[in-house]
Nucleic acid binder design. Structure first.
Lengths: 205, 205
DNA sequence: TAGATTGTTAATCGATTAACAATC
DNA sequence: TAGATTGTTAATCGATTAACAATC
C-alpha cells in the first residue's frame, strides 16, 4: 500500500464530521468538497488510500463510509488517556466532555503537587506523579496528554517513553525529544499567536 | 520580495526561542540546526526571506538576529487580545502567564452567562457578550481567541469579522467561515487525538 | 444505453534539500 | 591568504490538482 501522507489524517477527521452531520444516503466527492472546502480530487484521493468506498455515478454510501473512516481513525476503539499536569489547562481538559464521544477517556490524572493529589476533578482522581509508571503499565494506557510547565516536560516524556507510551499530545512550549516509533503532537499556543501576529503585521501594511 | 511560505513562520518562532536561550555571541545555521532539528539549509533559507542577517564564516550575531526575528514576528509590539467564552478552557487561557512575555495581553473577556458577567478571572473582568462590538472598536483589539461551544462559534466569528478583527485563534471544533483577508487558526483537540489514535493503530500492527 | 462519478495516472505546484560561488 | 559559512540557485522530493478511462 502506498504511504499515506500525514496531512491526510486530519482531513479524514473532517470528512468524518461531515458524514456524521449529513442526512443524505449518498454523498459524492463533489458534495463532500462543498462541505469541507477541500477539493473533490483530494477527497477521492484521500479515501482511495484506504480502499474503494465509492460507487461510480452514485458517490459514497454515507453510512458505510462513516463506518469505514471510523475504523481507519481508530474511533471504533476505546482509548485510555493519561493526563499529566492538573493545572488550569489540565483541569479544563479533564472537564471537557467532548473527548469521550470519540472514544478517548481521560480516566487517569497525575500531578506532583501534594495539595492536589487525592482530590478529584470531574470525578477523576488526581494521583501522585510517582505512580505514573505503575498505573500506566497496569491500566493499558496508550496515550498521554502533557499539560505542565516546560521545565518538567522533557523528563516526564522520558518516563512515558520508558513505559512504552507511543503517542503524546504536548501542550508545554517545548519540542520534547522522543526516540523513533513515538509521536508527539505539539500544541503550542504561543507559536500560534505569533503566527497570527505575523499575519496581522502583514495585513496592516 | 518572494512570497514567504506559511510554514516558515512557526519555524521562526522556534529559532527565536533558541536565540533567547543561547549564550553564544554568534550562531551558525549549523548550530541552529542542531538545536532545533531543522536542516541548516532550511534555517538559512527561512532567514533569507527577510534579509541578509548572517556574516560568511562567522554565522549570525545572536543578539541582532534575535531583534530582527522579534520585529518580523511582531513581538516588538503589544497586542490586545479578546477572549470569547470563559468556560474551563477560557479561564485556563486567561490565567496563563506566558502570553504577556510575547506581548499578547488578554485584557478583555466576554461571556453570555449572566452568572459569570461582572466577575473577574485573573483580574480580568468578564463582560457581557453584547458589549463585544463596542469594546473591540474602542480598545483597538486586533486579535480574538474563541473558547466556546461549536454551536456559537460561527455567529461570534461573523460578529468579530464585522468589527474588523483580522485574526482569530479558534478552539471550537468547527472550521468557521471567514472572508478573505481574515485568518483563523484552528486548534482542534479532537482532531489531534484522532491523529494520535491513527498512529497508534498503525504502530500496533 | 447515456450520464454521472469513481479510482488512478499524469501534470503541476510548492517546499525542502543539496550544491556552490560569493565573501567575510 | 586559507578556511568557514553565508545567500542563492538548481535538483529533488512530496503533495495537490487535473484529466480521463473504467464502471455503475
Amino acid at each position: 500500500m502506498k504511504k499515506v501522507p500525514s496531512a491526510v489524517i486530519p482531513r479524514l477527521s473532517l470528512y468524518y464530521r461531515t458524514l456524521l452531520e449529513s442526512r443524505k444516503d449518498f454523498l459524492s466527492s463533489e458534495e463532500i468538497s462543498k462541505l469541507t472546502y477541500f477539493s473533490a480530487s483530494q477527497v477521492r484521493k484521500d479515501l482511495a488510500y484506504f480502499g474503494q468506498f465509492g460507487i461510480p455515478s452514485k458517490g459514497y454510501h454515507t453510512e458505510k463510509l462513516k463506518k469505514a473512516v471510523e475504523k481507519i481513525l481508530g474511533l471504533d476503539k476505546k482509548w485510555e488517556v493519561a493526563l499529566i499536569g492538573v493545572g488550569n489547562l489540565g483541569s479544563a481538559l479533564l472537564s471537557y466532555k467532548g473527548f469521550s464521544r470519540q472514544g478517548f477517556y481521560i480516566h487517569y490524572a497525575f500531578d506532583k503537587d501534594k495539595r492536589k493529589i487525592g482530590k478529584r476533578v470531574s470525578s477523576v482522581l488526581i494521583r501522585d506523579i510517582s505512580q505514573l509508571e505503575m498505573v500506566i503499565k497496569r491500566k493499558k494506557i496508550s496515550l498521554a496528554i502533557l499539560a505542565l510547565p516546560k521545565e518538567e516536560a522533557q523528563s516526564i516524556v522520558d518516563r512515558l517513553v520508558n513505559c512504552e507510551i507511543k503517542a503524546i499530545l504536548n501542550f508545554a512550549p517545548i519540542r520534547p525529544y522522543v526516540p523513533k516509533g513515538v509521536v508527539v503532537l505539539n500544541i503550542d499556543l504561543s507559536i500560534e499567536l505569533e503566527r497570527l501576529a505575523y499575519f496581522l503585521k502583514q495585513s496592516l501594511k
